[in-house]
Design a protein around this nucleic acid. Structure first.
Lengths: 182, 182
DNA sequence: TCCCGTTCTTAACTTTAGTTAATTTTCTCG
DNA sequence: CGAGAAAATTAACTAAAGTTAAGAACGGGA
């Protein structure tokens, strides 16, 4: 990745500061923005009308790219809200402007392909694999290993959501693992 | 999608016939091929060394595109084998040739973006959502609804794998649903 | 059609997860 | 620092899933 290309991107981006708890993208949004998290932590979540509670879908620490998959790739309004989970600084650029920039610039085209499409795809695919092949306990261990910088900044109840289990169940898994070790 | 573009693609593709049971892509393969299933049914599966059995990851009926995500997008050898689950006819084209073709042809570029990247991404993402937000029972009902043409051609044990549960458990879910209905 | 292998179902049992609620611990921010 | 809120743990119970195994049903050749 060439430094000049990055500068081109940054010149076309705006900077946004969010206080902990502020909403970056509200549910229902249709805007096609791409965000780069420079600092902080963002979570995406879904309001479950049956259980009457929020279910956290994913957690994004600094140096991650967020695109609202629903609006940007699927042309639907966003199912999720994206919320700053710590004081957060993001760079924001319109997706279509980004496509325009990248199509005239081989380096940026490569960045686009590599860091947006491929990365999001890889994450989603690996996550499906973890659900198909692994137990909740194994999934938890893997998540801790892969994202320690997320786990130790986030209350367990949100991690439990991401793993597809309840907070109570996660607490028991931790207990089992702790007693097993001895 | 213009018919001319499709013909361009087909002229650069080869046709392959597979008997039921034959392997389309063996585990460990590094080839970057794109397959279009003209007729038949293909499954991808993983050999689980712990459980000493095959776990089916996904089922692809006719008119679906198969790319080996591991080799084509992640530059790793394939983790999965892809096997014809019925007598199957596929069109095959090398991924890089396809990229070359598409980059000089706006229609094909659109096909590429839309049907390969976006579709695979959409599938993977929706599938993660189903694991995070839904119970096995709900997941089964949704799968039946979304892919009836797969379900009624595939033994349940393979469907169970795809849903991340055991065949015994799927059988009980079916039983529960049947008695609930009355 | 009959046979054999695969798949499905059922049962019995063990383990784990969901649910609800009470209690303890930890955070947060005024 | 301290009070109130949020989160984590624990318990008791229910529901569901994993495991193993046995028998029934099914299906695809010969």
């Amino acid at each position: 990745m060439k430094i000049g290309s990055v500068i081109t991107l940054l010149r076309n981006a705006t900077t946004k500061h969010l206080k902990k708890g502020e909403i970056l993208i509200p549910a229902g949004a249709t805007g096609k923005d791409v965000f780069f998290i420079r600092k902080g932590l963002v979570r995406s979540y879904y309001w479950d009308n049956e259980k009457l509670e929020e279910i956290t879908f994913q957690l994004y620490p600094e140096y991650n790219i967020i695109v609202n998959i629903h609006s940007v790739l699927f042309d639907e309004p966003s199912n999720f809200s994206y919320q700053a989970f710590e004081d957060t600084k993001v760079y924001k650029i319109d997706y279509n402007s980004m496509i325009d920039l990248t199509s005239n610039n081989p380096d940026l085209l490569e960045i686009n392909r590599r860091y947006i499409g491929r990365n999001a795809m890889r994450q989603a695919f690996k996550r499906v694999e973890s659900f198909v092949f692994m137990s909740p306990e194994e999934r938890y261990l893997k998540y801790m290993k892969d994202y320690p910088n997320v786990v130790n900044r986030t209350p367990d109840k949100y991690i439990a959501n991401v793993l597809g289990i309840t907070p109570v169940s996660l607490s028991r898994i931790r207990n089992r693992l702790a007693t097993k070790k001895k």
